[in-house]
Amino acid sequence: MFAAHIPPLAGSLFSLLAIVSLLLAFVMLGSRWLNAYLGAFALQSWLIAVLSAAVAYYGGYPELYGIAALTALFRGLVLPYLLLRITRRLDVDRELHERLSPSASLVVGALLVVFAFVVATHLSTALGLGGTIAVLALTAMLSMKLIGFLMLVVRREVVSQILALLVIENGIFLGSQILVPGMPLLIEMVILFDLLVVVACFGVLVRYLIAHAGTTSSRELRRLVG
């Protein structure tokens, strides 16, 4: 595996990027302000772009440079800008009706990271890769996934839910860059997911808003039950 034989400098760079990305997920989890989410998400995407470029450089996967550029462009600039425009136009700047306060969700998030670490250690040991960077990559990947799911559950503004989906996907993307940098079609999958989110934002969300201006809380979406 690529990550098992990398120079120590590259290893520490990868670790640093993975850890800071994970911390940024916590920034999103611990804040009520939509602008803070957007900023943290954009920064996280930039870090992942840097990670792609670093993997491309140290591992010799030139196609990852393209992925780095696309990540920075789409997820680092275009998506945050579009979401920012929505929040401006709707005049929502913070999460009002979350199910769990930011401080409580930070605690739950920390527990989820511990769980992710246990699973990651177990899986890496099973593959004979215990003690390598694979453990860290796997932990960051699973934690960001779980934190994304947590945000999906406790947040009610539609913009936060879109961001939660994007965090889930950032996590997979971050982990797979380190674990399987040679995987073909990675780039297509990422772009497709972005496309899906854009459709969600501007197809469904805008239509919803046209019909019922004033509310963007999915709390109102509760007619269909049973």
Partner: peptide, 25 residues
């Protein structure tokens, strides 16, 4: 109701299908 259904559809299915992507990785 149609918009509500579409919203739930896209959010739940995307979240679910991202698990499948993780499995494929």
């Amino acid at each position: 109701e149609g918009v509500e259904a579409a919203w739930k559809y896209i959010v739940i299915v995307s979240a679910g299908i991202s698990l499948a992507l993780l499995g494929i990785v």
